[in-house]
Each structure stands twice: as structure tokens, then as C-alpha cells.
Lab assay of single mutants.
Amino acid sequence: QKEELKEKAKEAVKRGNKDKARELLKRAGISEEEAKKIIKKIE
């Protein structure tokens, strides 16, 4: 489940939808700070 949400978040970032990505990562139980780092890494 968590990995699936991370994959979806990756796709969202690639489409330029960072808010959606952050939302998905939060749903995966990832903190706001972690989510920001992950999104930065994907960009």
C-alpha cells in the first residue's frame, strides 16, 4: 500500500502536481518534512 502511494506520488510530481503528491505521501504515513524531501528528489 505504502509503495503504491509512493509510486502514485512520483507520477503526480512528474505531471507537475506537487500538492497531489504531498497528499498521497501523507496518506502513506509520511511526515510533511519527509514528503518535501521526497518530492525534491523526484523533481
Score class of each variant (00 low, 15 high):
Gln1Val: 12
Gln1Ala: 12
Gln1His: 11
Gln1Leu: 14
Gln1Gly: 11
Gln1Phe: 14
Gln1Arg: 12
Gln1Met: 13
Lys2Tyr: 14
Lys2Trp: 15
Lys2Ala: 12
Lys2Ile: 15
Lys2Leu: 15
Lys2Thr: 12
Glu3Ala: 09
Glu3Asp: 09
Glu3Pro: 04
Glu3Ile: 07
Glu3Asn: 09
Glu3Cys: 10
Glu3Arg: 08
Glu4Ser: 11
Glu4Ala: 12
Glu4Cys: 15
Glu4His: 10
Glu4Trp: 15
Leu5Ala: 10
Leu5Tyr: 08
Leu5Cys: 05
Leu5Asp: 03
Lys6Ser: 06
Lys6Pro: 02
Lys6Gly: 04
Lys6Cys: 14
Lys6Ile: 15
Lys6Phe: 15
Glu7Tyr: 09
Glu7Ser: 08
Glu7Phe: 09
Glu7Gln: 11
Glu7Trp: 10
Lys8Gln: 14
Lys8Asn: 05
Lys8Arg: 13
Lys8Gly: 04
Lys8Glu: 10
Lys8Ser: 06
Lys8Tyr: 07
Ala9Asn: 02
Ala9Lys: 00
Ala9Trp: 06
Ala9Gln: 01
Ala9Leu: 09
Ala9Phe: 05
Ala9Glu: 01
Lys10Arg: 14
Lys10Ile: 14
Lys10Pro: 02
Lys10Ala: 11
Lys10His: 07
Lys10Thr: 08
Lys10Met: 11
Lys10Trp: 09
Lys10Ser: 06
Lys10Glu: 08
Glu11Ile: 08
Glu11Ser: 06
Glu11Cys: 13
Glu11Asn: 06
Glu11Pro: 02
Glu11Gly: 04
Glu11Arg: 08
Glu11Trp: 07
Ala12Asp: 02
Ala12Ser: 04
Ala12Gly: 01
Ala12Lys: 02
Val13Ile: 12
Val13Ala: 07
Val13Ser: 02
Val13Gly: 02
Val13Asn: 02
Val13Leu: 12
Val13Asp: 01
Val13Cys: 06
Lys14Thr: 06
Lys14Cys: 13
Lys14Val: 08
Lys14Ile: 11
Arg15Cys: 13
Arg15Trp: 07
Arg15Asp: 10
Arg15His: 10
Gly16Arg: 04
Gly16Lys: 03
Gly16Cys: 09
Gly16Ala: 03
Gly16Thr: 02
Gly16Gln: 03
Gly16Glu: 02
Gly16Tyr: 04
Gly16Ile: 02
Asn17Phe: 13
Asn17Lys: 07
Asn17Glu: 14
Asn17Val: 03
Asn17Ala: 08
Lys18Asn: 10
Lys18Asp: 04
Lys18Met: 14
Lys18Cys: 14
Lys18Pro: 11
Asp19Val: 09
Asp19Arg: 12
Asp19Met: 13
Asp19Ala: 12
Asp19Trp: 11
Asp19Glu: 11
Asp19Asn: 10
Asp19Cys: 13
Lys20Asp: 09
Lys20Ser: 07
Lys20Ala: 13
Lys20Pro: 00
Lys20Met: 12
Ala21Ser: 00
Ala21Gln: 01
Ala21Leu: 05
Ala21Pro: 00
Ala21Ile: 04
Ala21Thr: 01
Arg22Leu: 15
Arg22Asp: 04
Arg22Asn: 07
Arg22Lys: 10
Arg22Phe: 15
Arg22Thr: 08
Arg22Tyr: 15
Arg22His: 10
Glu23Cys: 14
Glu23Ser: 08
Glu23Ala: 08
Glu23Arg: 09
Glu23Lys: 06
Glu23Ile: 07
Glu23Met: 09
Glu23Phe: 04
Glu23Trp: 07
Glu23Tyr: 05
Leu24Arg: 02
Leu24Phe: 08
Leu24Thr: 00
Leu24Ile: 06
Leu24Met: 06
Leu24Val: 01
Leu24Asn: 00
Leu24Pro: 00
Leu24Lys: 00
Leu24Gln: 00
Leu24Tyr: 09
Leu24His: 02
Leu25Cys: 10
Leu25Trp: 00
Leu25Lys: 01
Leu25Gly: 01
Lys26Trp: 06
Lys26Arg: 14
Lys26Glu: 13
Lys26His: 06
Lys26Cys: 11
Lys26Ala: 13
Lys26Thr: 09
Lys26Gln: 10
Lys26Ser: 08
Arg27Met: 11
Arg27Gly: 04
Arg27Lys: 09
Arg27Phe: 05
Arg27Ile: 07
Arg27Trp: 06
Ala28His: 03
Ala28Cys: 13
Ala28Arg: 02
Ala28Trp: 05
Gly29Ala: 01
Gly29Val: 00
Gly29Gln: 01
Gly29Cys: 05
Gly29Trp: 01
Gly29Met: 02
Gly29Ile: 00
Ile30Gly: 00
Ile30His: 06
Ile30Ala: 04
Ile30Cys: 14
Ser31Thr: 09
Ser31His: 04
Ser31Pro: 08
Glu32Ala: 09
Glu32Arg: 05
Glu32Tyr: 07
Glu32Phe: 07
Glu32Pro: 07
Glu32Asp: 13
Glu32Gly: 06
Glu32Gln: 06
Glu33Leu: 07
Glu33Arg: 09
Glu33Thr: 07
Glu33Phe: 06
Glu33Tyr: 08
Glu33Met: 07
Glu33Trp: 07
Glu33Asn: 06
Glu34Ala: 07
Glu34Ser: 04
Glu34Pro: 00
Ala35Asn: 00
Ala35Glu: 01
Ala35Arg: 02
Ala35Ile: 15
Ala35Asp: 00
Ala35Phe: 05
Lys36Ser: 14
Lys36Pro: 02
Lys36Asp: 15
Lys36His: 13
Lys37Trp: 10
Lys37Asp: 12
Lys37Ile: 13
Lys37Ala: 13
Lys37Ser: 11
Lys37Tyr: 10
Ile38Leu: 10
Ile38His: 02
Ile38Asn: 01
Ile38Pro: 00
Ile38Trp: 13
Ile38Ala: 02
Ile38Gln: 02
Ile39Ala: 01
Ile39Cys: 03
Ile39Gly: 00
Ile39Tyr: 04
Ile39His: 00
Ile39Glu: 01
Ile39Lys: 01
Lys40Asn: 12
Lys40His: 14
Lys40Gln: 14
Lys40Ile: 11
Lys40Thr: 11
Lys40Pro: 01
Lys40Cys: 13
Lys40Tyr: 15
Lys40Ala: 15
Lys41Tyr: 12
Lys41Phe: 12
Lys41Gln: 14
Lys41Cys: 14
Ile42Lys: 03
Ile42Pro: 01
Ile42Cys: 05
Ile42Arg: 02
Ile42Tyr: 13
Glu43Ile: 11
Glu43Ala: 07
Glu43Thr: 06
Glu43Cys: 10
Glu43Lys: 05
Glu43Gly: 05
Glu43Ser: 07
